[in-house]
Nucleic acid binder design. Sequence first.
DNA 1: GGGCTCCATTGAAATGTTTCAGACGCCGTG
DNA 2: CACGGCGTCTGAAACATTTCAATGGAGCCC
Lengths: 344, 344
Amino acid sequence: MANGRSPSVKDVAATAGVSLGTVSNVMNRPEVVSPATRERVERAMAELGFVRNESARQLRAGTSRTLAYVMLDGSNPFFHDVAQGIELAAETADLSLFICNSNGRADREAVHLDRLVQQRVQGVLITPVDPEAPHLAEIARRGIPIVIVDRVGAGGAFCSVAVDDVLGGRIAAEHLAEHGHTRVAVVGGPESLGQVRERLEGARQVWAELGLRPEDLIHLPTSALTVAEGRSAGERLAGIPGRRRPTAAFCANDLLALGLLQQVIGAGMRVPDDLAIVGFDDIEFAAAAAVPLTSVRQPRQELGRAAARLVLDEAADPQHRHRQLSFEPELVARASTVSRPRAL
Amino acid sequence: MANGRSPSVKDVAATAGVSLGTVSNVMNRPEVVSPATRERVERAMAELGFVRNESARQLRAGTSRTLAYVMLDGSNPFFHDVAQGIELAAETADLSLFICNSNGRADREAVHLDRLVQQRVQGVLITPVDPEAPHLAEIARRGIPIVIVDRVGAGGAFCSVAVDDVLGGRIAAEHLAEHGHTRVAVVGGPESLGQVRERLEGARQVWAELGLRPEDLIHLPTSALTVAEGRSAGERLAGIPGRRRPTAAFCANDLLALGLLQQVIGAGMRVPDDLAIVGFDDIEFAAAAAVPLTSVRQPRQELGRAAARLVLDEAADPQHRHRQLSFEPELVARASTVSRPRAL
DNA sequence: GGGCTCCATTGAAATGTTTCAGACGCCGTG
DNA sequence: CACGGCGTCTGAAACATTTCAATGGAGCCC
């Protein structure tokens, strides 16, 4: 039943009684071939179950019909929403999307990039471990369009799409300050991640501007942006004696916030009365937490869509100029900071 | 700087002063070429920045070095954990993993499969919208190994890897019965999804065996397995007048359970005292919910890893026989059903 | 020194598609 | 009738790699 080898253009040409070129024309420029022949060829293709060999096409064309997204953390739904946005744009352009996951490791990232170059992908979208890493520049040097997602590329060397993380941190801190919090924990790490650095920096700026005491902005470092690390931070926080304990926490992302939330509730604290919590990203599970999480929203899908558009533009337009797109984050207030939420 | 065209084997051969064949040998059978030449070739490759063109290699080889996983719902972390397991196995075999998302739509699924056949992927792993769909058989007929993940293929026509969903449903129902619940809501839909059918069926079986009244097992149908649908089911549940209201709910997956949890807590009910909740899948967020969710655990990564092994076996072994692997689900009891959890 | 073996290397074929210059036949026009 | 033009189709080249039979040379034994 399985024929062994799948039929080629040549086979189709033979059974339809035409030449190779004509079969190719039927597929790529149907308007130049007469209706009669076209129908004959199409019947032959159906009969043989012909499927174009993409490798051969790519070989000839010199480039594939795929984009790739290398994400930073596959266990964070945020990146999947970004990927979803990219996919939408890719689909519109009739391209496939190849998704890789570096899991925060520079070496895995390099391996993936290597493979993508081998595949001659049309463009690379990436949320890098380190936007300054030389292997990113290497991709660009090869002439492959590359767009940094959720970070800003080094010195404008690439296109990038990001939200203003410093602003996001400011928004979160301002929100907490407005609700009367004067002793706040900022939770996040490692500082090697630019996202973390800038979000916490934004909070510090506000703190300074409001004239609050620096020692009342308490940094709880974490080794990763995960739920488990959030729980660990929650333990440390709950361990702080009552009078010195912060009344609010700003977490560098929602996974941390969810872990922290779980931990402190388990320890008997009430949210937001004993501890208000603000997360970052506004992933779907933030709203679905039993105490719905206030979060700094990033336009996740839009981020992906915009990045895809940039990479396609760079691929199409020879005199493309790199652009750094910046989106504004937005606070979504929910029950974890506001005792009586307006909307359910 | 960007050279326009990337260097080929021919270029490497020229600068190293050897023939094409030798360069190829350096890459594929380094042991047959003398150390001196090998080193010369390797230097030339480095100098030119040579990267093998995967399309050409594939064209010659007849098959690519990629597996593909078509997942049913990209917004459900469960499938990403499965994908992670597949990726691990793929990496071991030095293959790439192509991830697609059908989003529960048969037409998207068909489009993806079509593209994958064009790519001549080595194997397809899929959690199908409908395991009986003819386009799955079509893949197999083409000689491409295909493995059904999280379902059992039609009539043993394919390999498959799944947990026993009926058993899972039984385990959940037994757990609730043991805790004294005699009026229970079963939440899930659409029934076109086999997972839903079987999980609910398992619950019904237990119900019958225990001699409980069928009308006390109340089905709350949903149109999808999402958090939003879970909330909607929660509304309906909370709307049931107190005496007739179920004291527990079994949800067909964790997303539903999380949505339901959120909704009923918002409506002022206490979990588990007013309503116990059991989910299914045991995704990471189940444990991280503010009332940690009791869930029927599937070995998510292991599912993926086993599926990948099957597909690789089918690709390698000509006299491969299809196998249906079945894993046992396992109850993970947490605070959403047990007032005083043993472990924190 | 001739013949032999063994090893490293070569050159050409093959993979399946696209593209493009050209061929072929037909029609209408001068 | 000759010619140009047009619409349709053909055949071959090109893409980058792998593979394999064949080549060449070096060393060894008799």
